[in-house]
Design a protein around this nucleic acid. Structure first.
Length: 500
RNA sequence: GUCCCCGUCGUCUAGGCCGGCCUAGGACACCGCCCUUUCACGGCGAUAACACGGGUUCAAAUCCCGUCGGGGACGCCA
């Protein structure tokens, strides 16, 4: 079959274009992930472009922190650009638009930051006197060194003639239209000669052949401006075709407001999740479920499954709130998913994640030991960091002080605790240290003492772990080894003396 | 203020485009029970929502209008 529409056949090119004004924001991360998923699902190309045209606000530290976040996610990109390196291209594009009469110079002094340009009367459209200024006067003033911004001359209806209607089909929000009359004469170049976001972003998207622009819904109304820029730019770019747009619902805070670094603090930074012990695949899984659904009730999804399932049709239109409070900084569902992903990890891989964390906590944690400890805590931690508190007694030489009363079993007394510990000491001195042997020996000892297993095990558990809530007893004893067990039971016996 | 978007359990969502299968499904969280040597895992169960008002229709969460609520855009920020 002949290929009638070659452009529809070429693989999609998508981009993620963060501006380096802070750390990588969870909302940005989700935008990145959706773009990445779209690219991988459709065998397309993922472009990373650092939108650093705002020299005032951009910092190199921020660029690094964005890379930190992206590297942690582990999703690779195929091409990488820096907008600041393409400045000359942007200026040339602006000049070309001006030369064609599609833009004009605006000599109005820039607004101060606190001045809101849109009055209470309605939307601001353009500054009086500038749009109509003759080319001669404009040239003369520019030549005289007067500063100006370059504004796009948005087509407007004149007299009885209605303005044209701008339209595009959004991949998520559907058909969008707006009369050009309602679009303000936005700036292309600032009075310092720097391109604005709108110009730089559209030029690069067109020049880099981006086929699908997937971004936050806060750009939905900006898209009408972008349509105009693309139109003006397109004529100079061979084989240009208008990109498809898809806007993503916003991620909002529990109070419904837009997530912001300033207002909500570190919980909006992806490195906070990393440092708290989230697995990147769990974090990705969680973010995907915010504003997107595979529509088959599945929630725990691996990266491969996400790639296979992802489509723009599954994207929701309503904003999604990401739940957090000061006491509980992470969304319950994110934590649950993380626990699921932790349990799904093979022991060797989980051990590998845990090893640096144990070492950081100051534990003597050789590989073999971590490998032995991991199965004991795998089902007891929801965040990797919790492994430290869950397994500390398996690493330290001396147990942290605990209340001797903990040694007393249910429906028992101090004497019973001591009897159990004495017996355990004898049994463990000779028993072979593997799960089944210990199970057999200790159960037999309990029976001999006339106690229920649970009653007999509690003093031993507390003696060995220093607390009541701990992993299963026999596995714990095995990992700890005979020497440590006997020593701790001996210490417990001493402690129990104070119980009278 | 103007324009745009959105509104299903506390939260994430399915269902909505193609009205009846929805006495609205799933998940997290919460509560209860079971399993069990503690904790955890696992299993089972319970509570919980179509923002409101009109209309269209034999029939509306689903279509239409309005109201209210939330959000976004309106910068020489991105």
């Amino acid at each position: 079959m002949p290929d009638e529409n070659p452009s529809a056949r070429t693989s999609p090119r998508v981009r993620f274009a963060p501006s380096p004004t802070g750390f990588l924001h969870v909302g940005s991360a989700r935008t990145f992930i959706f773009n990445w998923l779209y690219a991988r699902h459709n065998h397309g190309t993922m472009v990373l472009r650092i939108d650093d045209t705002d020299v005032e606000r951009n910092t190199e530290a921020s660029v690094q922190s964005i890379f930190d976040g992206l590297r942690w996610l582990g999703l690779n990109w195929d091409e990488e650009y820096r907008q600041s390196e393409r400045l000359a291209l942007h200026r040339k594009a602006a000049e070309a638009i001006f030369a064609r009469g599609l833009a004009y110079r605006d000599f109005t002094p820039a607004h101060a930051d606190d001045e809101h340009p849109s009055g209470v009367q309605g939307a601001w459209l353009f500054n009086p006197g500038m749009r109509e200024m003759s080319r001669e006067e404009s040239d003369r003033r520019a030549a005289a060194g007067e500063r100006f911004a370059l504004r796009y001359r948005v087509p407007r209806g004149s007299g009885a003639a209605a303005a044209r209607t701008l339209r595009f089909a959004d991949g998520v929000y559907g058909e969008q239209t707006k009369p050009a009359d309602e679009v303000e004469d936005f700036a292309l170049l600032r009075s310092d000669g720097m391109p604005t976001y709108h110009l730089a972003s559209c030029f690069d998207d067109a020049d880099l052949g981006i086929s699908h622009i997937i971004r936050g819904q806060d750009h939905l109304t900006n898209t009408f401006k972008h349509l105009l820029i693309f139109e003006a730019l397109g004529v100079a770019i061979p084989n240009f075709s208008m990109p498809q747009f898809a806007h993503l619902p916003l991620l909002v805070a529990p109070d419904g407001s837009k997530l912001s670094k300033r207002k909500h603090g570190p919980v909006v930074s992806v490195t906070t999740y990393r440092d708290a012990g989230f697995l990147p695949q769990a974090f990705i899984n969680f973010l995907c479920l915010l504003g997107w659904s595979p529509k088959n009730d599945r929630e725990y999804l691996t990266l491969e499954e996400l790639v296979g399932l992802f489509s723009l049709e599954g994207v929701n239109r309503a904003n999604a709130v990401i739940n957090f409070t000061e006491e509980v900084p992470f969304d319950d569902k994110a934590v649950w998913l993380n626990a699921e992903h932790i349990r799904a990890l093979p022991v060797e891989e989980l051990a590998q994640e845990l090893e640096p964390i144990f070492k950081q906590a100051g534990f003597n944690a050789p590989r073999e030991k971590v490998l032995a400890v991991t199965p004991l805590i795998r089902e007891r931690i929801k965040l990797l960091r919790e492994a430290v508190a869950a397994a500390d007694f398996l690493f330290v030489d001396e147990l942290a002080p605990y209340d001797p009363a903990e040694l007393i079993p249910q429906k028992g007394d101090a004497a019973m605790a001591r009897r159990v510990l004495e017996t355990a000491k004898e049994v463990l001195a000779v028993a072979s240290f593997d799960h089944d042997s210990l199970d057999k020996a200790l159960r037999a000892a309990a029976a001999q003492l006339g106690l229920k297993a649970g009653q007999a095990f509690q003093p031993i558990r507390v003696a060995v772990c220093g607390r009541k809530n701990a992993p299963p007893l026999f596995e714990t004893l095995v990992v700890l080894g005979r020497e440590a067990c006997l020593k701790r039971i001996g210490q417990a016996l001493e402690k129990s003396a104070s119980l009278g």
